[in-house]
Write a protein that binds this DNA or RNA. Structure first.
Lengths: 346, 346
DNA sequence: TTGAAAGCGATACCAG
DNA sequence: CTGGTATCGCTTTCAA
């Protein structure tokens, strides 16, 4: 009961009305007499008619879809991002197209192709070239998430530098640590670049010499394990750092696993910090000191920006939004355990 | 230099040819004289014409898009799944729509709505109701991934029961362990159901009594930490299990972190195993004993099945595919460390 | 209030 | 080879 191949014309014929009337009824637009409406609804019901998305989209010249471009999604961060984005898109009847440019050569072309299939796009910072980004922005509304956007393109990100500097200062001043290392590749993502900058800033403002270079690894847990292997191997001339400041929670957890697996005690033998405040951060033993960032809100707001731009092509660009972040001190930096389990703040 | 608002008619007029010829040139179909072709290409180039996706889709009555439905993506498993799916879809010019039904009430309706926007859908098992699945299958080709499909709908999954039984037997027989527990919720996903069955089978075939119930938690790392808290708390009358068999690697890693964080030694104090052979499994210390499953292939094959069905509507359903899996014995079950780091296999 | 008809942008059949 | 034209399914003037 309800072949999906039924068209407006079909319904119009069966109800003995014009296609215009069927369209009006099925969209609730315009005025239709009760009698006509009844006849149409009956036919619609009986044949399970649902207006074809393509026909409608072509007439409206609107896809009813939003795009989301990733470098190569992995881990809780991207999961949150997708869900936050969806939480705004779905209620607006917009489906979500995703594209992982991960390691592909033709990613610029693919993103442009996506631009022809959606009404607007959110691009994660550091994913495609600025030229591609600008060209994309010429075809549809675009917002850059967690990164800098070329002129005219709005962006949204979280505060990285100051909070990472604060966290680093906490380690240097409150815990009196020296020999900190930074785990993460500043080349890879704008977020990491800014966090590395914050790490350096903290050192400099205290007149301390920061390490010359970061431990440039990726952002996955496995990368953290690799970093731990490099940093924490027993003895061997190389001095073990007092603290490992990681670009995100995932790598921090990887380092933590690596440390614990080697029999090291955290924070007594080595201090470890992350960035994100992922669910795991509060659960591991010891709890992970980190910086809380509102990933879900970030993505939801990105979706809102794009949707608004789609609805009102004339509106002024929203510029660059920066969402606040907040250090969360737990046991892994040497702070005393909180009175209740879990995080410090509510 | 190329406004995207140019249409076939525009190009036709500018090149002094008919729209049919423009279409032929831009699609490479039919025969066109070199002279015409040159004129058309020139106009196309000059105005940066690219055929509109909606117009084309409507004419072809084909969206050029595939859908992927998740329960609520999280962790490396879903990451792999998406990338595997994309790896097949993208070369076929199909964009990927995703939908996370996670915790939403109207997920059935949303999946049906998706069915109207794509040419075919892959649904992760246990995500939507069987009725919704059947109705979806009436509108577009569908394949169920990692789950059972109602009659007529093809499915693809990995072998779970036998490999989990083999792994469990290994613990019971080769390592002489008793008091094993299973971490994972069989209600939540078909994969877990089958793994729990395998766990039970191994006990029964050896005449041993398995635990009455699993530790029913989710599939994320955080759930593993919670399970560890419940299972490994010090002393307290409750006897600590000798081995913790987890439904996937993520929870196993969570349990591992929980165990190490409590100062327990693995495998000496407690044995831990997973399922997936995620990248982390080979990297942690001790290496995680697990079962390797080809997640990427699973998703790629799912995409292939859908694409084939889309291209050849008449073709017979491919039935139910089961991809092989393979136990990977590492240190966490008590096996001796391998000669080289990493897994046992190649 | 209702219907006829003109698009939306592209494809493909059928003559010429 | 090439062009005119119907068609895909729906929305939306514009008259009646």
């Amino acid at each position: 009961m309800g072949n999906s191949r039924v068209t407006v014309r079909e319904i119009a014929r069966l109800a003995g009305v014009s296609v215009a009337t069927v369209s009006r009824v099925s969209n609730g637009t315009g005025q239709v007499s009760p009698e006509m409406r009844r006849r149409v609804l009956e036919a619609i019901e009986k044949h399970g008619y649902r207006p074809d998305h393509l026909g409608r989209a072509l007439a409206a010249r609107r896809h009813g879809a939003l795009g989301l471009v990733f470098p190569g999604l992995s881990g809780p961060y991207f999961t949150e991002l997708i869900q936050g984005f969806e939480s705004e898109a779905v209620p607006s009847q917009a489906s979500v197209h995703i594209l992982c440019t991960h390691l592909r050569e033709d990613s610029d072309a693919q993103v442009l192709e996506m631009g022809r299939r959606v009404d607007g796009v959110a691009v994660i910072g550091g994913t495609i070239s600025d030229t591609a980004l600008s060209r994309l922005a010429e075809m549809v509304p675009v917002v850059v998430v967690a990164g800098e956007a070329p002129g005219g393109v709005p962006s949204i990100r979280v505060e990285n530098t100051a909070s990472m500097a604060a966290l680093t200062r906490h380690l240097l001043v409150d815990h009196g640590l020296r020999d900190l290392v930074f785990v993460g590749n500043p080349e890879g993502s704008p977020d990491v670049t800014q966090r590395w900058t914050g790490f350096l800033d903290a050192h400099r403002s205290l007149g301390l010499r920061p390490p010359a270079a970061p431990v440039a690894v990726g952002l996955q847990q496995a990368d953290g394990v690799l970093a731990a292997e490099r940093l924490l191997r027993a003895g061997r001339g190389v001095r073990r750092p007092e603290g490992v400041v990681c670009a995100n929670d995932e790598t921090a957890l990887g380092v933590l696993v690596g440390a614990l697996g080697r029999g090291l005690r955290v924070p007594q033998d080595v201090v470890i910090t992350g960035f994100d405040d992922a669910p795991m951060a509060a659960l591991v033993t010891p709890g992970l000191t980190t910086v809380r960032q509102p990933v879900r809100d970030l993505a939801a707001e990105a979706a809102r920006i794009v949707l608004t731009a789609v609805d009102r092509p004339g509106a002024p660009a929203p510029g660059d939004l920066v969402l606040p972040t907040e250090p969360v001190l737990r046991r892994s930096c040497g702070c005393p355990p909180p009175l209740t389990t879990g995080g410090t703040g509510k």
